[in-house]
Design a binder for these strands. Structure first.
Length: 216
DNA sequence: TCATTGATTTGCT
DNA sequence: GCAAATCAATGAT
């Protein structure tokens, strides 16, 4: 257990109040994350990821996410809490950052043991590096294991609701880079966005019914 | 303590 | 298209 509030969090002060930015408005609050993970993964598309740093503001629009849910063998929390995934069992809106190979990946925790992987953002501030792919996204925002456990609702890293109508439909596809449960359509992306990651040829799988429907 | 693995990225063929 | 890079978490010994 890490003692006290995470360094990136604002602490207990203002608990229950929406954390607001003078320009971006109110940050997404606890209730946003405290919903079914696929709903949150879909709803995050178009939202703005913000990090206020001494060097200035870093801002990007979320264009690609993946849901990691309960009873999902690809989920790091599948076998219960460990030292690495401890923050996945924190409150909704907790940040879970882990390292894989030489890079970091960032997730927003929804309910305990479930999270949304932030896979790609479209840069909205100049100087934000390429953020196509979870590793590049973390590099662009300077996220490391030190940020694990931060509170996305009050900390220096926050997410804000879309400031404009969606520029296109959200499509679903199989998740990338996993070996288990590769058939599940738990990847969400803004269709046609050039800022979506493409480690493999981006192709959506035909979805029975409405492709925008989020039901599993 | 040792071996295996990986929610990635990059570079070479 | 494919494999190497490279290291910490994890599970077995």
């Amino acid at each position: 257990m890490r003692p006290g509030p995470h360094p990136l969090s604002a602490g207990g002060r203002g608990a229950g109040r929406r954390s607001a930015d003078p320009v971006l408005g109110p940050a997404l609050g606890r209730a946003f994350y405290d919903r079914p993970t696929t709903i949150v993964a879909r709803a995050l598309i178009g939202c703005r990821l913000s990090r206020s740093a001494p060097e200035g503001l870093r801002l990007g629009r979320v264009v690609e996410t993946e849901a990691y849910v309960a009873r999902d063998p690809a989920n790091h929390a599948f076998r219960g809490p460990t030292e690495r995934n401890r923050s996945m069992f924190g409150r909704p809106g907790t940040l879970y950052v882990y390292r894989i190979h030489q890079v970091h990946c960032a997730n927003a925790v929804t309910c305990p043991g479930e999270a949304v992987l932030l896979r790609a953002v479209e840069p909205l501030t100049v100087g934000l590096g390429d953020a196509r792919g979870p590793g590049r996204l973390c590099r662009a925002f300077g996220l490391t294991r030190d940020d694990d456990g931060a509170d996305l609702t009050t900390g220096g890293l926050r997410i804000f609701a879309p400031d404009q109508p969606s520029r296109g439909p959200v499509v679903r596809a199989p998740r990338v880079g996993i070996r288990m449960a590769t058939d599940r359509l738990l990847r969400f992306a803004l269709k046609g966005s050039p800022y979506v990651s493409s480690p493999r040829p981006w192709r959506t799988r035909p979805v029975p019914g409405n492709p925008d429907r989020v039901d599993r």
